[in-house]
Structures are given as structure tokens and as C-alpha cells.
Amino acid sequence: MLENWIVTILVSVGVGSVLFMVALFVLLRNNAHANIFWNELVLEKITNFVMDQSKEQRILNSVSYNAIKGDAESVLDCIDKYCSQKEWAMNVGDEKGLILDKIVKEADPTVALELGTYCGYSAVRIARLLKPSAHLFSIEFNAEFVPIAKEIIEIAGLEDKVTILEGHAQDIIPQLKTKYNVDTLDFVFLDHWKDRYAPDTILLEQYGLLRKGSILLADNIGFPGAPDFLKHVRNNEHYECTHYPSHLEYMKAPDAMEKAVYLG
């Protein structure tokens, strides 16, 4: 009798464990919040502890070992492969990257600005499309990401086209004219803290950094969203907006990008 009772408990625990794992798999597959939580706050922390290095360093290692030096496309492919197959990361990614490519080609900028460098993926993506006389300024507040991004950009052979400015956008934007000799910006890619999209856009306006025809492209408008930014540009006679539905980088979760052309 006791043996039957023990067997029943063990079977129940086993079935319960299987059901729990199935439920967890479904949740992670269909819920972007849960998926990011699992990847960023569970798996990444465990891997960092075991390997004694950050995810960003592992991305750099993959690029260093596998990408062709001086080949920007090879660098992008390497990062996309790593982040889609091994560890999720918050790059703009390959799908939305095609939208970014399209808008950069449309803007054909001489001077471009990126808010949020991270590992340098989108900086490489933008800089590889710039004409010989053009330059990209990229602002990154996290001091740990800056050297990694610089090395990845150098591997791509684009170090002469990109200047990374370390610090907070709200501190650097007011200095762009006086300290970095920026007159106006032809293209701005917003991919930093979502609650900073609107206030930093307003700073760009206040400091006269936007000209008629300047193009702003904002990532993650669908997830996690930037409602204050959308409210500012869509309800503003000085902007003409276009919405681009897509998916969150390396996931099936819905996301979107928003293009806002400054009309002056």
C-alpha cells in the first residue's frame, strides 16, 4: 500500500513538472515580457556567473572569432546569428534592420545621430550606408558598452565614420553644436530609453538641430512602446509620420517603428 502511494506521488510530481515546463514554454514563446525576463534576468545572469563575462562581451567574442574584418555585412550577420540562436539581445535586429536601411537610404544623411549605441549593431548598420563625406554620432550612457561597441565598429571597418559620445543624451544634445560642430542633423535614430524619446526629441528642436526634412526614426514603438513620443510627433503640425509594423528583434512578438519627418 505504501509503495503504491509513493508511486502515485512520484507520478503526480512528474506529470506536474511536465505540465509546468509545457506551460512555461508556451508562456515564453507567446509573451514578450516573459521571454525577455527569462533571457535577461535568468539565463543571462546564470551565464554571466558561470563564464565570468557579460553577454555583450560574448557577442564581441563571437564577432571577433567569426566575422570577416572590414566586412560590415559579415559583422551584422554574425551578431544576428548569435542573438537569434544563442542569446537574445536588444539590437534592432535583421527584420527591423531592413526598415532602418530603407530610411537611411531615403534620408541620405551627411550628419546622423543615434541615441543608444549598445554593442554597435545599428551604428554599423547605419554607417555602412553613409556616403564618403558623411558621419554618424552615437550616444551611449553605459560605460561598459562603449569599448565593446567601438571594437565591433572597428572590426566592421567603420571607425572613421562613427564617433561614440559617452554620456546621457540630455547632457550631450545641448553640446552638439558648440562642442562637436554639428549644424543640423539629417537623420536621427532613437533606440535608447523609451521614456526619453519625447524629451530628447524636444531638446533636438529647442537647440535647432532639426532642419526642414530631417528624418527621425524611432524603434520599439510597438514594444515596449513610447506613447509620449507618438503623442508629440503625431499631434504636431511640424511632423509628418509613417508607421512601420514589424516584430520585436529575434522574436515573433509584434513591434513597430515610427518615421517622423520634420517639416520646419
Rank of each mutant, 00 (worst) to 15 (best):
L19D: 07
L165T: 00
Y82L: 06
E154T: 14
L113Q: 05
T8M: 14
V75A: 03
H238T: 13
E166I: 07
A127C: 06
K231S: 14
R128M: 05
C83D: 02
K259P: 01
E258Q: 12
V182Q: 04
V50K: 13
A149M: 02
C241A: 12
K259A: 06
K231T: 14
G16Y: 06
E249R: 07
D183C: 10
D77A: 13
I173W: 01
L185I: 08
L19F: 09
I148C: 05
D52C: 15
S54E: 10
V15W: 08
W38H: 12
K177A: 11
Q206I: 09
A169Y: 01
N61V: 11
L24Y: 09
A198I: 07
F187L: 08
K131I: 06
R196C: 13
C78W: 01
P109T: 05
G116E: 02
V26A: 14
I79Q: 04
L98M: 13
K179I: 10
F25K: 15
G16S: 11
T117C: 08
L248M: 06
A112V: 03
K55H: 11
Y244Q: 03
V233P: 00
E144S: 15
L190T: 02
V92T: 11
A226P: 00
A260L: 02
S12C: 15
N181Q: 13
L98D: 12
P199L: 10
K131Q: 12
E258N: 07
G16A: 12
A23R: 12
D186R: 05
L204M: 12
M251L: 15
I153R: 00
L230G: 12
G222T: 05
L230W: 05
G157V: 05
M257W: 01
C241P: 03
G70K: 03
L216R: 01
I36A: 13
A218C: 07
K69V: 14
A253M: 09
T201E: 05
C83P: 00
V63C: 04
W5P: 03
L129E: 04
M21E: 15
Q206W: 06
F137L: 07
C83L: 06
E56W: 05
L76I: 08
G225A: 02
I173Y: 02
I172V: 04
H247Q: 14
N66T: 10
E249C: 13
L98E: 13
A67S: 11
K194V: 07
D108Y: 08
D200E: 14
D108P: 03
A253T: 11
G70T: 05
W38F: 15
